[in-house]
């Protein structure tokens, strides 16, 4: 099968900092592929290499079947890149920005309008407004429109939802879902673990290394322990008490409960006795399914 991205052993250092350490992965055509990881994981460096803006120190990478170094000019014509920081011209209007990007790539707004219409229609009523005067959500829609206007085969989105509220994040993913019908391959990075569920496949990345690559479902199933969810009215006390219990392996707050794993994968009376001694009489513990973030935490803790 044709691979949109194929990379093996990519490394990149900045002085003493190893930003990427032997990164290997491939992305299939028309796939929504997510890089999930915190700040400093290496996501932006990797995306800059993929978009031919940076050369790796080591390793092989082909994008759309082309070499990122030798064929960079050809490649750039077929990639749409939305960097993490808003980088459109603030002193041009919405329409001028879009027109500019279209012209640079030798096309027109009209020619590819159907591709961006779902997104651009939201901001079109404000097309005479300066880009610098737009709200965050509108800037994001304009940036996405500009990245798409030349009908790229590969769309690269670097943390499009960072600092964005939960509702706008959800709306953004709805827009990406609609883009799928145009068969564009989408590569996206995010620090929000819940967004993994919106991708076909994801790579969990931390400290320049890939911890796991798979479908979100398979990654969740990779969780190696039985996971329990514990609740009590005094949550901080509960976390502390669970951490002190001799059989506890990990205890992490997760929303309104605490996710716990035990060395022997079971809960018995000794746990409830321990909690009672610690002053918790209303503990309610049930088995639960691991999510992406549970698995991420497990992989982060795994000794190398």
């Amino acid at each position: 099968m044709y691979k949109t991205i194929e990379s093996s052993g990519i490394s990149k250092s900045f002085g003493p900092t190893k930003a990427l350490d032997e990164i290997s992965f491939s992305v299939n055509e028309s796939e929504v592929f997510g890089f999930i990881g915190p700040d400093g994981a290496g996501k932006t460096t990797l995306f800059r290499i993929i978009t031919t803006l940076l050369l790796p120190d080591k390793g092989e990478i082909k994008v759309l079947g082309l070499d990122c170094k030798a064929d960079y000019k050809k490649l750039r014509k077929n990639i749409g890149y939305m960097p993490g920081r808003f980088s459109l011209y603030q002193d041009l209007t919405v329409e001028e920005n879009l027109n500019f990007y279209a012209t640079v790539f030798g096309t027109t707004i009209e020619e590819n309008y159907d591709l961006i219409s779902d997104i651009y229609s939201h901001i079109e009523p404000f097309k005479k407004r300066l880009a610098g005067k737009l709200s965050g959500g509108m800037k994001q829609k304009l940036a996405l429109s500009c990245a798409l206007i030349h009908k790229p085969e590969l769309l690269v989105l670097d943390e499009p939802t960072t600092g964005v509220d939960a509702v706008s994040r959800s709306e953004f993913w709805d827009m990406l879902a609609k883009l799928r019908q145009h068969k564009i391959t989408i590569l996206v990075s995010t620090p929000y673990m819940d967004e993994a569920m919106r991708c076909d496949r994801v790579a969990l990345i931390q400290g320049g290394k890939i911890l796991a690559i798979d479908t979100p479902q398979k990654i969740r199933e990779g969780f190696s322990k039985k996971l329990f969810s514990a609740r009590a009215s005094e949550k901080y006390k509960l976390i502390k008490a669970l951490k002190q219990f001799h059989n506890t392996l990990t205890a992490y707050p997760f929303g309104d409960s605490v996710h716990v794993t035990f060395m022997n994968d079971t809960i018995d009376d000794s746990l409830y006795d321990h909690l009672k001694t610690s002053g918790i009489n209303d503990a309610y513990i049930t088995e639960t399914e691991a999510g992406i973030e549970d698995r991420f935490l497990e992989l982060m803790n795994k000794p190398e």
């Binding site: 990881g37 915190p38 700040d39 994981a41 960072t162 600092g163 620090p191 673990m193 931390q206 901080y236 976390i239 992490y252 707050p253 973030e293 991420f296 935490l297 982060m300 803790n301």
Partner: peptide
């Protein structure tokens, strides 16, 4: 927004500091 972009373990350690 003290925990924006912070890894999941540190995010939780941060909340323990808040508690």
């Amino acid at each position: 927004e003290p925990t924006g972009g912070v890894d999941p373990i540190t995010r939780r350690q941060f909340w323990e500091m808040i508690y």
